[in-house]
């Protein structure tokens, strides 16, 4: 295993909105060790979503280099990025993003299908759901689950391929404080039990307070890293 799980050098991301160029990131460098837990904070428009997209390999930087788990990913093709995502990255979204017509089990199995896991998918998905305390909800569909439970299904889905990093984008944004707290406990528990690197993207100071390291972004640049 390499020294850094996230090793970003001078990431720049520029969008063209019509004639105007928008500089979403202006040279961000970030190094994260395996097993670290950090929050990326900043007001809207500070570039934290863009940074998350780059870290999660959903997008490529305009310039700069990015190594994920030792692999250079800043100039891969779309399908190569998809492959990296399926092996190394887990996502937890604010709005859960579960497939509404599929059972919890099928939702958790989805990443394994795309990763080409042929055998033992059901077994692994069941274990992942048990790990988030949903062993008795395997056959439920999202609309039969509470918000907190749905988010836990999403966590199980993020975990099931044993990724190097889990990216959580405002994971408690749509939840009441009690289930939000539960979700946080499960996420942090993962880090403790499995050593998964956790990156929160949030502007909730309470979440940030529970992480050891806080990176603050402003206008596309890192202004604080502690």
């Amino acid at each position: 295993m390499s020294e850094w799980v996230i090793d970003a050098e001078a990431l720049v991301k520029t969008y063209k909105m019509g004639e105007v160029e928008v500089h979403a990131l202006r040279g961000v460098s970030l190094k994260v060790r395996p097993g670290e837990v950090l929050s990326i904070m900043g007001p809207s428009g500070s570039g934290k979503s863009t940074l998350m997209n780059l870290i999660g390999c959903l997008d490529r930087p305009s310039t700069g280099s990015y190594r994920l788990d030792g692999e250079q990913v800043s100039d891969l093709s779309d399908d190569e990025l998809a492959e990296i995502r399926s092996r190394k990255v887990g996502f937890v979204f604010q709005s859960f993003n579960l497939l509404g017509r599929q059972t919890a089990l099928a939702n958790v199995e989805l990443p394994m299908r795309y990763a080409g896991v042929a055998r033992g998918r059901r077994q692994r998905a069941t274990e992942a759901l048990e790990a988030v305390g949903l062993g008795d909800r395997l056959r439920h569909r999202p609309n039969e689950l509470s918000g907190g439970q749905q988010q836990r299904v999403a966590i199980a889905r993020a975990l099931v391929n044993s990724p190097s990093i889990v990216l959580a984008d405002e994971p408690t944004g749509n939840l009441d404080s009690k289930s939000g707290d539960e979700v946080m406990r499960y996420l942090l528990g993962l880090n403790k039990d499995l050593g998964t690197t956790l990156v929160f993207v949030t502007h909730d100071p309470e979440i940030a307070a529970r992480t050891k390291r806080i990176v603050r972004l402003f206008d596309g640049e890192i202004v604080e890293d502690k």
Partner: peptide, 16 residues
């Protein structure tokens, strides 16, 4: 569209 986005996020390639 969102479903497609999610499927891609969890690793679906174009041909999937």
């Amino acid at each position: 569209t969102r479903e497609i986005g999610l499927r891609k996020a969890v690793g679906a390639r174009k041909r999937d």
